[in-house]
């Protein structure tokens, strides 16, 4: 096997399970959606939605890199 990209290989990061790249993208998307929904329900009256977007994107990067 000559994988060009190592990230598709399963690995153990700070997430409790072994993940590969797809898993981490999937988890990021799930969290992104969840944050937005909860934000709209509970926080949007106080803070605009784009804060949620930035927050979840940051989180996504963290997960993709170190998850």
């Amino acid at each position: 096997m000559n994988d060009k990209n190592n990230s598709t290989k399963p690995r153990q990061g700070f997430l409790p399970i072994t993940t590969n790249l797809f898993d981490r993208v999937f988890i990021s998307v799930v969290i992104l959606v969840a944050i937005h929904l909860l934000w709209m329900r509970f926080l949007e009256a106080l803070l605009p939605l784009w804060i949620a977007t930035i927050l979840s994107l940051v989180l996504a990067v963290i997960i993709l890199k170190w998850g």
């Binding site: 994988d3 598709t8 590969n20 790249l21 898993d23 999937f26």
Partner: peptide
Amino acid sequence: YRLKGSSN
């Protein structure tokens, strides 16, 4: 086959 992302 060891396919990339097969479990996904």
